[in-house]
Design a protein around this nucleic acid. Structure first.
Lengths: 88, 88
DNA sequence: CCATTATGACCATTTTAATGGTCAAATATA
DNA sequence: TATATTTGACCATTAAAATGGTCATAATGG
């Protein structure tokens, strides 16, 4: 009934997203890892849904020009919370 | 000219967002940490823009019922990439 | 104002992500 | 098909995140 998304699921989806982006750009894990200055193991674990640091995913997003967009979403969400407070 | 957002900046904004959400809910760092089963130091570092793991931020998002929403965005982005590929 | 609570800043220790390497299987390519 | 490349799965080591604690200062409430 309830579609309960678990943390594990989200990590898996993030991994699939990164893999899709990488494939779209015709890069191997090794090539992506090199351009991000991380090890291939780090990319591999990220893509396979293991735990990883925010630095790693943000490096990926910066590489594919999605960092500004994410930042915008975060700031937007933050402002929404701060504005909601002032309504009471 | 170019508003170059750096990784450090995004981590800072994520920290401010978490802090804003926590304040909105009237929780102390200690209370939030306890309900997420992490240490206060972890929450503190997250809010202050240090590096942290995806597990930590996802725990926060799950706690405030934003996990499904994020998952939707990720899946959406992934599908967009996968669909774009088939257009060529 | 005083007392209480919350937070930032450390620190030592433990846990775990990141690294760099190998290897076998899968996949792409010639 | 044979060959080269890629990827998943390990593993030992290193780097760093998480933990649990203290302390001083800031913020909050009575």
């Amino acid at each position: 009934m309830f579609n309960t998304v678990e943390i594990k699921d989200v990590k898996n989806e993030i991994g699939l997203l990164v893999k899709a982006i990488r494939k779209q750009r015709g890069l191997s894990q090794t090539q992506l890892a090199k351009s991000l200055d991380v090890s291939r193991t780090t990319i591999q674990n990220l893509e396979l849904g293991k735990n990883f640091t925010v630095d790693t995913i943000l490096k990926v997003l910066k590489e594919v020009d999605l960092l500004e967009q994410l930042n915008g979403k975060v700031v937007e969400a933050k402002d929404q919370v701060l504005n909601a407070k002032s309504l009471y």
